[in-house]
Every structure is written in structure tokens, then in C-alpha cells.
Design a protein around this nucleic acid. Structure first.
Length: 315
DNA sequence: AACTTCATCAACCGCGGAGCT
DNA sequence: TAGCTCCGCGGTTGATGAAGT
């Protein structure tokens, strides 16, 4: 870890930035940076910030610098606290397990660094983002995998933008999948049964197999398994966080399984499209949530709304 | 030893959403 | 409803040290 104090400021003059001048009427005193210091933080500033937050708590970032005696903007204070000074921030190298987790979460969530960081205790979005850009993306490229899509790079891209080839080269993915949790026929932590006896390539496997080709069902498997033991009303308030967590775990479980299937027989389960396609911001999480939540027979209206709101907020 | 290139990562920037009036 | 403020997010920058020539 580089000594921050030794780093010179990006804007040594410390003068106001002209970049925010174009923000028009929305420019706030916080953003004007008139007379505010920029660049690396000194230990003294760190102490001031830490002491203030330990005393007063987080939040009110705009007023914080003034009250704490710092010549920084609120944004800078928040960033420094979140990424460096927070006691829960874990320093040191990313472990192989964490790297594995980042890869799998990125496959599911894309560049949602804050969401990914939320699933990795002690790591910040900035740290994960940096690690991805400097390590993992290059690693995937060297393995022949597109770091954006997590699909094999096509050496001969078609000008017609044809759909993905049905046969996926298992070698690059296998290197990733080899690091993933083993997923045989088993029950996940949240109780969602993971199938390995998949049906035919259209996802028709008879009873109980609709999880693979029905987004609603996929979602609701996670939802219902999480709600299964939540009969008490007083559990409703906090079930949504668990719900999202369970949902994500479920997706990751299926994700692992999908990779194994690709390895073994090039089979691409229909829900692959759901995971890697529908779970993209451009296609809207809201629709998924609405569809899943709207069709839910498991929860009361309050739960549905709470869940939909939570998912919308998080995604 | 001097110079150049590469890798790393803290910090900055602009944007957009949420909440309030 | 519109406008404003605050906050958080993701993309990007640029200083620094390491590695290479």
C-alpha cells in the first residue's frame, strides 16, 4: 500500500476546479471547491475526520467538513471515510476466494461495484473496481473471455451481429469454473434445490424443472424458499434483505452449474439468458421484480411492495 | 545511470435518484 | 409539479513506484 502522504496532489494548487463550473444552477457550495483542499489526505486530516465521525456518526456529509474543521468538500470526506478510514475496511491483498466471488458476482451483476462490494465484507467498491480493472479484466482477456459479457471472445466477429454461437468453447470458462464452488445435486444455503438432472436442451424436464426456463419461477424459487419459514409477521420487515441475498445466492449457484454444464456437454440452460441477459440494467430489473413479485402467492401485499422496492433500490 | 513504459490505486468528476419544500 | 439539495455510484484521471531497455 502506497503511503498516501507521500503522494503529491493531483491539483497541487488546491484551487477551485473549473470542471464543475458547467453544472449550472445545480452547482452547490460543496462542489464549487473554492478554497478547498484537494489531493491526498494527510494523517492530520484523517484524524480530524475519524474523530468527528466516531463522535457524531456518518452522514450529513455536506456539513461535515465545516464542523470537523476540514478544508475538504463533503464528497471527498465521504470517499475518504468509506474507502479508507472506516474500521470495517479490510486492507491487504484480495484472496483467491474473494477473487472467485468477484468474478461470479460480476458475471451476474456487471459493473455494479457497490452491489458487489456489499457482498464481500471489508472490501470497498473502489477497491473492487480497481482490482477488476487492473487484474481480473486482463486475466479474463488472457483466457479468451470477454470481461464485459463473460462469454468467449469471438476472434472473427460477424458484421451482422449474429446471436451467440451455440457451441461454447469450454476451455476458457473451465478455467474460471474450476475456481467456482463445486455444485453437484444439492441444496443451497437458502434451501433452493439445485438440479443437475437437467432435461432436454429446451429446458423441458417435466415436473419441477421450470426453474431453468421461467424467470418468474427462478425468482420465486428464491423468494419462496426464503419465505418458506417466514410465517411470523414480525419477520416481514427484514425478510427483503435476506430475500435479495438468497436470490443472489441462488443465481450464483445456478451460474456455477451452468458453467459445469458448458464444460460437460456444451449445454446452455435457458435461464442462462435470464441471468446474463435479463439481469442487465438496460433490460430492467424492475420488470423482473414486478413479474416475479406480482405473481407471488407467497407474500402479502406489504411484502411484495417491500420486496419490489428493495430490489428496485438495490438494482 | 538515465530514460521509458507499465501497473497500481487513491482521488476526482459528472450524473442521476431520492427526498424535501 | 417543479426546483433544489444531498448523497451515492461508476467511470476516469494522474501521481507514484516498479520493471524494462
Amino acid at each position: 500500500m502506497r503511503n498516501l502522504s507521500s503522494m503529491s496532489a493531483r491539483n497541487p494548487s488546491g484551487s477551485s476546479s473549473s470542471s464543475s463550473a458547467g453544472t449550472g444552477p445545480k452547482t452547490t457550495p460543496c462542489c464549487s471547491k473554492i478554497g478547498l483542499k484537494r489531493g491526498p489526505w494527510t494523517p492530520e486530516e484523517d484524524d480530524l475526520l475519524s474523530n468527528y465521525i466516531n463522535r457524531e456518526g456518518e452522514g450529513r456529509w455536506r456539513m461535515l467538513p465545516k464542523r470537523a474543521g476540514l478544508l475538504r468538500c463533503g464528497k471527498s470526506c465521504r470517499l475518504r471515510w468509506m474507502n479508507y478510514l472506516r474500521p470495517s475496511v479490510k486492507r491487504g491483498q484480495i484472496t483467491p476466494d474473494e477473487e472467485d466471488l468477484i468474478l461470479r458476482l460480476h458475471r451476474l451483476l456487471g459493473n455494479r461495484w457497490s452491489l458487489i462490494a456489499g457482498r464481500i465484507p471489508g472490501r470497498t467498491d473502489n477497491e473492487i473496481k480497481n482490482y477488476w480493472n487492473t487484474h481480473l479484466s486482463k486475466k479474463l482477456i488472457s483466457q479468451g473471455i470477454d470481461p464485459r459479457t463473460h462469454k468467449p471472445l469471438n476472434p472473427n466477429p460477424s458484421p451482422l451481429d449474429s446471436p451467440p454461437a451455440p457451441k461454447i468453447n469450454p476451455t476458457p470458462n473451465a478455467q474460471v469454473a474450476g475456481k467456482c464452488r463445486e455444485a453437484d445435486e444439492r441444496t443451497t444455503d437458502n434451501g433452493w434445490f439445485v438440479r443437475t438432472d437437467l432435461g432436454d436442451q429446451n429446458g423441458r424436464d417435466g415436473t419441477g424443472g421450470e426453474s431453468w426456463n421461467n424467470p418468474d419461477s427462478l425468482m420465486m424459487n428464491a423468494v419462496q424458499s426464503s419465505l418458506g419459514n417466514s410465517n411470523e409477521e414480525d419477520q416481514i420487515d427484514y425478510c427483503s434483505d435476506d430475500l435479495f441475498s438468497s436470490f443472489l445466492n441462488s443465481l450464483m449457484d445456478e451460474d456455477t452449474l451452468t458453467l459445469q454444464q458448458q464444460q460437460s456437454n456444451n449445454f446452455v440452460p435457458p435461464s442462462e439468458q435470464f441471468i446474463t441477459g435479463l439481469l442487465k440494467p438496460t433490460l430492467g430489473y424492475g420488470n423482473i421484480c414486478e413479474a416475479a413479485v406480482g405473481s407471488s402467492a407467497a407474500g402479502a401485499n406489504g411484502e411484495r411492495e417491500h420486496f419490489a422496492h428493495q430490489m428496485d433500490k438495490l438494482l
